[in-house]
Design a protein around this nucleic acid. Sequence first.
DNA 1: AGTCACCTTTACCGATCTGTACACCTTTCG
DNA 2: CGAAAGGTGTACAGATCGGTAAAGGTGACT
Lengths: 197, 197
Amino acid sequence: MSASKRDELVQSALKIFYEGGFNAIGMDRIAAETGVSKTSIYKHFRTKDDLILATLRLRDEQFRNWLVRRVEVLASEPSLRLVAVFDALHEWLTEPGFRGCMFVKASAEFQDRASPIHAAAAEHKRLLQLYLEKLAEKAGARNPAELALHLQLVSEGAINIAHLNDAHRAADAARAAARVLINSAFLPAATPANSND
Amino acid sequence: MSASKRDELVQSALKIFYEGGFNAIGMDRIAAETGVSKTSIYKHFRTKDDLILATLRLRDEQFRNWLVRRVEVLASEPSLRLVAVFDALHEWLTEPGFRGCMFVKASAEFQDRASPIHAAAAEHKRLLQLYLEKLAEKAGARNPAELALHLQLVSEGAINIAHLNDAHRAADAARAAARVLINSAFLPAATPANSND
DNA sequence: AGTCACCTTTACCGATCTGTACACCTTTCG
DNA sequence: CGAAAGGTGTACAGATCGGTAAAGGTGACT
């Protein structure tokens, strides 16, 4: 009972924070829109930051699960899954309710590096990078860690630009740029991308 | 007098907002840290949003000027200037005071598409894209608009990841990924990146 | 010297913020 | 049927939010 109620609360809070921002949304609004009284909310979470952390944990879990499963469905061969990541990304960016990355927003509103919220956002990005790295590894990339980071830069950029300008254009461009980077990472060291001066 | 005082105020507010966030910083704090009384601030700006808009305009001007001049110094040939953009970016990302992109933060805290602040952030990104497009055009890229967008995705992603994780790694990776994308954009259509299904 | 325009300080407004005290109601168990 | 227990809404506290009114200072120009 209490556990599932709590999950519902976090799920609702997630949506409200995502659409309205963390600082801009007050606990009164959370209580009003979730139907859970403020007193009860503070029974489950000692502070607002704790509630925000819980929503971020849920978001991290939901998003990564969604991405992994979507990629599994879209492509079965390891070499194709890297591209499939950007097909899944395309789907997300062009969704009607798309409002940017929740963790980017969280890190924008809680800049203090000591804040657990900032740390949670950083951790989410690290986990995504790790996922890409594993995909690149299975696909047999020359340098999986490097390719993963390159792809993450493109995907993060696409998320931001999609939020500010044309989402379709950004999503298409991300897919195209990713293809170029992926191809280059499998070529027999034709273009040494990491040549320093 | 009034004009330069105003500029000083905006300059100081820019720094304070950049380090503390827009919603988190109150006007009392702006008044206290700038030494300008709240009454005087509201003589120059009717609302807090107006002050924020002024800081964003200043930031846009300063950043684009800095980037253009830095690229001019770092490379004289058009074909090399595209790479130089990422050398300049590297310098910025690894600065001690780097705290992410101010416009990303602004758009994160003011998500409403009707907000002039959101629009200002979008405009900034559009202007940067235009600058990259002009560079790509002068360098003789096959598809300047597409290359510019690809490079912007990488650069935006690097700004975000640098803010959350290792800045040096992100900056290096951005430079490497940019080189790959630039090289590919000058090859005689060997890898058609924009091939749709 | 006197006047005027501007800037500052101080105090304040109503609204909203996070977080809490307390009385109430429901549920469960004896 | 009654009583202990725990979740519920109301109402509130203390602080801070954006924004303003009014009075006191300060300097420049005539």
